[in-house]
Design a protein around this nucleic acid. Structure first.
Length: 356
DNA sequence: CAAGCGTGGCA
DNA sequence: TTGCCAAGCTT
């Protein structure tokens, strides 16, 4: 086993000489650390930077965030994905105002009680925001520690996770958690990468067990992943006097709270127009006439792929009432930007505008 | 505790 | 084109 002192010293020295500049790193305060950590969940630094800048400009304090509408919050988050993060951040801000006088608590277990804050994020706010001695484990750290210590258990199982957290805690240098945690993550992001790690320039290559055994490619061990299903989906662009009908998705689940063109999944053996008429009847309670196809869009989500066919439609019978959807609204084309949508619906919007 | 939850970059 | 993965959390 590597010696603690020698490992942590090498990592800290390397980090202080090589850390990248980031907006939340250059002026750290607990609120900025919190927002950045939520945005960075499963998301790359370069993607987050512009969202973070806009967010901190618009919601300068936790109080301002708490007082905002969910619509404004989702709008700033649009395009970033995993929208429950935005809804939870908003909710948590209200908890912080109501129960912690508007300031984040400098306490690991109190932090972890906030919606959207798990063990990693609580540790990150505690160490990076408050300078406390708390360990963190993210995807980078799992990989880095699994290689340095040649961990043979799969890191995405309960047993493997426990082992990694124990290593993170055991090797945490007292008083240096802030830089040490970031050093491990920075090493994972820039040197100890999933593919083609740059072991030649790694500051701990003489200590790393996987490097010594030439097992970098075999670590970390993970369990096999499930196949992703493929769905065919139909969406209706229902127009009326220059406006289109948007429906708001239910608050939870996929794209929760976002606006979309109504429609849904094609069932076995069903034609697309039939699918669309059925979905619109169930979702809005009206009948439509299906017209020409506006476009075909392919998109990959985390756990499935879709091919979406969008059709220009007309209302035939009845006035749309929200049944499956939370709410519906006729929206001028120029106002589409005010409504937070997922990628696919945004693509359809662009096609509509381009075709006019 | 396995499954659900977005999007973009890269090989 | 497809699969993999990226500063995870919730149910």
């Amino acid at each position: 086993m590597p010696k603690k002192r020698s490992l942590t010293k090498k990592l800290l020295t390397w980090y202080r000489a090589n850390k990248r500049s980031m907006p939340w790193r250059d002026h750290p305060d607990p609120y900025a650390v919190w927002v950045s950590e939520i945005m960075l969940q499963q998301t790359r630094v370069e993607t987050v930077v512009p969202y973070f800048e806009r967010w901190m400009m618009r919601f300068t304090t936790i109080g301002k965030l708490a007082a905002a509408s969910q619509q404004d919050v989702l709008n700033l988050w649009e395009g970033l994905g995993y929208y429950s993060r935005a809804r939870n951040l908003h909710k948590a801000a209200q908890v912080v105002v109501d129960e912690h006088q508007g300031a984040l608590p400098a306490d690991l277990s109190a932090l972890q009680k906030l919606p959207g804050v798990g063990r990693y994020t609580a540790g990150a706010i505690a160490s990076l925001g408050f300078g406390l001695d708390a360990p963190v484990v993210d995807g980078n750290i799992k990989r880095v520690l699994a290689r340095i210590f040649n961990v043979e258990e799969a890191v995405d199982t309960t047993v493997g996770e426990k082992r990694i957290w124990a290593l993170a805690e055991e090797y945490l240098p007292g008083g240096e958690a802030k830089d040490y945690n970031q050093a491990l993550m920075e090493l994972g992001a820039t040197i100890c990468t999933p593919r083609n790690p740059k072991c030649e320039t790694c500051p701990v290559n003489t200590i790393c067990e996987a490097n010594k055994l030439d097992l970098q490619g075999e670590r970390p061990v993970t369990k096999p992943k499930a196949e992703v299903p493929h769905y065919t989906v139909a969406a209706a662009v229902i127009q009326k006097r220059g406006r289109v009908l948007l429906a708001q998705r239910p608050a939870d689940g996929l794209l929760g709270g976002m606006w979309e063109y109504p429609g849904g999944k094609q069932e076995d053996g069903e034609s697309l127009p039939v699918c669309l008429r059925r979905e619109i009847r169930e979702e809005l309670g009206v009948k439509i006439k299906v017209g020409e196809e506006l476009g075909l869009y392919r998109h990959a989500y985390s756990h499935f792929r879709v091919t979406l066919h969008a059709f220009l439609c007309e209302l035939k019978v009845g006035k749309p009432k929200a049944i499956e959807a939370q709410a519906i609204k006729w929206v001028w084309l120029k106002d589409l930007g005010d409504y937070p949508m997922g990628k696919l619906d945004r693509m359809i919007s662009e096609t509509i505008v381009a075709k006019r």
